[in-house]
């Protein structure tokens, strides 16, 4: 575990040198929030209106949290890196080292994600307060619960994307699978809470990754309850175990198929 924490730390320290690049990239976050703010203001003709159990402010805070989770993740970069590692044969450099590639990817990517998460969260909260003028009612326990849930959501997301990237062992380019996954999360998980979907789709969404990587933490933030916290954390832990197992299984099977030409 110590070596993975070292990888995490060194990645974090490296990225601290490029904070300006990260900050410039935050313009996209501000734009997305601005678009959704305008969109929901248009949909809610009256700010006190409640649609599917959500007020306008709750909807905007929901999007702020889900966008923090998605934007800080940098999933496209992670998937592309793993695909390139496999396709180019660079993965052999990692195989010979005394660590597991899945854990290496997880902790190395957590380094940059943690930094981005902290910075985007500050930005997101400031934007929320600026545009909405109020913060959701949360106790200290609630805040800690949301942070824990966000951390688990990020780890699960990284493991899912790592698994998608490792599919490159079997097909040449796994990036198209990532596009579909990212759109699923963006469209189904980021913009609307599950309650906005047709009744027959809601149970499916509840068992999908959307519930644990996007809906869960955001729902806790806008409408916190201890029961909800417990339910979401339990489902996240189950998902964490499953995704960890699948990632290792795919890696183990894939490495056996690896064929690298020396050079």
């Amino acid at each position: 575990m110590k070596k993975y924490l070292y990888i995490f730390k060194s990645e974090l320290m490296t990225n601290l040198q490029y904070t300006f690049d990260i900050l410039v990239g935050f313009v996209s976050y501000c734009i997305m929030i601005f678009i959704f703010l305008n969109l929901w203001k248009y949909i809610y003709s009256n700010p006190n209106e409640v649609i599917k159990g959500y007020t306008m402010n709750q909807m905007i805070w929901y999007v702020i949290v889900t966008e923090i989770l998605w934007m800080s993740l940098g999933g496209r970069k992670l998937c592309k890196k793993i695909c390139n590692d496999v396709r180019s044969g660079n993965i052999t450099y990692n195989i010979t080292k005394p660590y597991n590639y899945v854990e290496y990817s997880l902790f190395s990517h957590l380094g940059i994600t943690t930094l981005k998460f902290v910075l985007i969260t500050i930005l997101g909260i400031l934007l929320g307060l600026l545009f909405l003028g109020e913060f959701p009612h949360l106790t200290i326990l609630g805040i800690l619960g949301v942070i824990l849930s966000c951390a688990l959501a990020t780890i699960i997301n990284i493991l899912i994307i790592t698994t998608i990237g490792l599919v490159s062992f079997f097909i040449e380019d796994a990036n198209p699978f990532f596009w579909l996954y990212s759109k699923l999360i963006l469209v189904v998980g980021t913009i609307f809470p599950i309650e906005f979907f047709p009744q027959f789709l809601q149970p499916i969404a509840k068992y999908s990754p959307i519930y644990v990587v996007s809906y869960g933490p955001a729902k806790l933030f806008v409408d916190y309850s201890n029961e909800k916290l417990l339910e979401i954390i339990i489902i996240q832990v189950i998902y964490l175990g499953i995704t960890w197992l699948i990632a290792h299984l795919i890696y183990k099977k894939g490495v056996k198929k690896l064929n690298v030409n020396g050079g």
């Binding site: 198209p176 699978f177 596009w179 579909l180 759109k183 699923l184 963006l186 469209v187 189904v188």
Partner: peptide, 8 residues
Amino acid sequence: FMILNNAC
């Protein structure tokens, strides 16, 4: 996949 991606 790009067509599907957009269709989402």
